[in-house]
């Protein structure tokens, strides 16, 4: 009997050690990075940027896969079905991951997709066509107040960052705009450029992509963005609005804490690289450093921030 116990105990120790050592050596092989959208979007581009530095920092390659569907919900709902060994990680977006479960039953809860690290955000920006009559944000607000419901904003998806931003904008400015959802940022921008809508509620990244064809009316950052030195922030214009789409890297919730910590460290290290930061900022992304121990607070803050807008959305439905 005693022998059996000793045997069992040693087995447990060995297995445990193996687990820990596996975690300690993480990563020992290539990691699958799932992007829950179609290629070409912000999530994809930033993942690609990370990919090029991943080998330096972590010693292993990253294999990017796409699982688009339902604005990200399909992939996030499947996250916890993957092996929680840290070799399958996923991109996760806020506000989407908070909004979607609040509005509908999408197969996951926000806690299920808690990120290990939130590494950037794309600031909300209001874009209009270069030949638009709106020269400043005030022009747009005046027009919106004079004709309630007539200002059309194009944006990507329903219950998404763009959608939320439009609702919050209405709340702040006291206007009533109409949000027109499109299947992605590219069609949303095309609608703007084709004159189908009056403005686009989008991100700085889309503005940079469109170059001279658009005018940016305002950006939701603390300070003016380097790429757009002449564009005022919402704060300057009197609106306390600093927001955008935050993106992080997450892994199945049952992954060992060690692995989560390591992943957080890796992403943080990539974020620290000056070339990476420069690439991101040139393209309109604002790098943030929210490691895994700060993530809970981050999510709580965002929930508070979005609370009244979510109420408004629910009421409208």
């Amino acid at each position: 009997m005693k022998r059996l116990v000793t045997l069992a105990a040693s087995a447990a120790v060995i297995l445990g050690a193996a687990q820990i050592s596996q975690a300690a050596d993480y990563p020992t092989k290539a990691i699958t990075y799932i992007v829950p959208y179609n290629p070409g979007g912000e999530s994809d581009v930033t993942a690609r940027f990370q990919e090029s530095y991943f080998k330096d920092v972590a010693g292993q390659d990253v294999v990017i896969q796409y699982k688009p569907g339902a604005g990200g919900a399909t992939a996030w709902a499947q996250l916890n079905g993957f092996e929680p060994d840290g070799y399958t990680v996923m991109n996760v977006n806020f506000p989407h991951a908070i909004l979607q479960p609040s509005m509908k039953d999408v197969g996951y809860q926000t806690e299920d997709v808690k990120p290990a690290f939130v590494f950037h955000y794309t600031p909300d920006a209001i874009l209009v066509r270069a030949d638009s009559p709106y020269q400043t944000l005030q022009d747009l607000i005046d027009d919106a107040k004079a004709n309630p419901g007539a200002t059309t904003f194009s944006g990507s998806g329903t219950n998404s960052a763009n959608h939320l931003a439009t609702v919050r904008f209405d709340q702040m400015a006291g206007t009533k705009s109409t949000y027109i959802p499109f299947k992605g940022s590219a069609p949303s921008m095309a609608a703007l450029l084709g004159g189908q809508v009056k403005a686009a509620m989008s991100y700085t990244t889309q503005g940079i992509k469109a170059g001279d064809q658009v005018r940016v009316l305002a950006i939701a950052t603390e300070e003016r963005v380097a790429a757009y030195p002449d564009v005022p922030t919402f704060k300057e214009l009197g609106f306390d609005y600093v927001a955008g789409a935050y993106r992080g890297v997450t892994l199945p919730k049952d992954a060992p804490a060690e692995v989560r910590q390591k992943l957080s460290d890796i992403i943080g290290a990539i974020n620290a690289k000056p070339e990476f930061r420069q690439k991101m900022e040139e393209n309109g992304y604002v790098v943030t450093d929210i490691p895994h121990d700060k993530v809970d607070q981050f999510i709580a803050d965002r929930r508070a921030e979005y609370a009244s807008a979510i109420e408004a959305l629910k009421a409208a439905n």
Partner: peptide, 22 residues
């Protein structure tokens, strides 16, 4: 079938998350 892009309705998925994307 799935989550509508425009409107966000979740239709005919029988509760299957795999069908959310249509």
């Amino acid at each position: 079938v799935g989550s509508a892009v425009v409107g966000g309705d979740v239709r005919y998925t029988f509760g299957q998350t795999q069908l959310l994307g249509g």
